[in-house]
Simulated scan of single mutants.
Amino acid sequence: MTTNVGSIETVDVDQGFAFSQSLQITPAWYQDGDVIKCEVTNTEIPNSNPVITSINLDLLFAPISVPEINGYTSGTPVREGDFLNISCQVTGGKPLVSNIKLVCDGADSTSIQIKEQDTVISYTWFRVLRILHDKVCGCSAVHVTNKYKLASVVTLFVNYAPSVTLRTEFRRQTRSVRLICEARGRPAVFHFSRFTHSWRGRRIRELTGELEPPHKYVLTIQPYRYSDSGSYQCAVSNDIIGLNTVTQQLGSISVNMEGDLLPAVNEHLIPIVAGVAGALILLMVVVVAFVVYNLRKTRIAKEEDTYMHLNNTERPANSDGGECEHSYETINNITVQENRGEGDGQAVEDMNSHNQSPNPYQNIQIPVSVLQIRIMTANLATFINRCRQHVKYIH
């Protein structure tokens, strides 16, 4: 305690003199509750009793001890998947600290706080994950004096099962492929099993690879063949049980190798070859479309000429049935042309065969195109209508 005793002051009053003295102190936390006394004695009066007054010190002070973390010590391995329960307590202070903050970076934690006599305790618990490795749990507290600046920290050390990746590296020039099985975990002491080759769920064989630093197991196939296609799997362990409750962790990949089907090709030529092939295909499509278009155009023109010929045919009119007979003969004399498609020209068939058969419609030939069928149907209908009119006229 630091004290500062002032000088004695004397004041003249009506009934005598008054004496006073001041005392300034800077108390420490441990002086809380101490008694300060003031004693006055009049030495001018023999055998006089002294006059005594006192006060008790009632201090506000922050705790002097650092927060204490229990339940975990920095560097102690903890397995991924386990639940960690830690606490932090702060003792002392007047009054006690109002709030304790116990926070672990990245942890999804739950906390409660209680008071026990002169101590405040905060409990927190959470599930340990690999992302919490090397993360810090810190504890601090808040006091009414705003003078409590002490804190404590611990660093988490997490062991976890390996995560496995399996990838391929193709080298077309040498017709080789590397299957690389890589592991990451803690502790970084890994046990690799042989590669397993399967095809459509059926296990075919096991293959031995080679260890490469830092934590790789590599299988090289040279030259690769189509029969090497399928699913490949590698298993890795570091004696830590994973979140999947097993020790061996797996990595797998599906590989399609075409060593027996395709020769080694310079990868830089692939875009050029693809472009040339596309251009040739486009040219063939254009040529075929042009040929088909011209064939159809020629055929339609011939069919239109036939139709115009039929419409322009003169039919002599007479009242004694000559028009009907002439129309009938015109229909039977229609020349139908068929495209044989063999380059030997067009065969012409004469349909005028009504004199050789008692049935005038027996030898009529069916046209080869829809347009010709429509022409024949129209002219036949015209012929029938005219014959009906002729018969009606006679009657």
Rank of each mutant, 00 (worst) to 15 (best):
Y123T: 10
T124E: 02
W125H: 13
W125P: 00
W125I: 07
W125T: 15
F126L: 05
R127H: 02
R127D: 04
R127E: 15
L129S: 12
I131E: 13
L132I: 01
L132T: 01
L132H: 03
K135F: 01
K135A: 00
V136E: 10
G138H: 05
G138M: 08
C139R: 00
S140G: 08
A141H: 01
A141P: 00
V142Q: 15
H143D: 13
H143F: 07
V144K: 10
K147Q: 15
K147E: 14
Y148M: 12
Y148F: 15
Y148N: 06
Y148G: 06
K149P: 01
K149T: 15
L150I: 07
S152F: 02
S152M: 06
S152C: 05
S152D: 12
V153Q: 14
V153P: 03
V154P: 02
V154Y: 04
V154F: 04
T155D: 07
T155M: 09
T155E: 15
L156H: 05
L156S: 06
L156Q: 07
F157S: 13
N159S: 09
N159I: 03
Y160V: 02
Y160K: 00
S163R: 14
V164I: 15
V164R: 04
T165I: 09
R167F: 10
R167N: 13
T168V: 11
E169I: 15
E169M: 06
F170P: 07
F170C: 06
R172W: 11
T174P: 01
T174A: 11
R175T: 13
R175Q: 13
V177H: 05
V177E: 03
R178N: 12
R178K: 15
R178A: 13
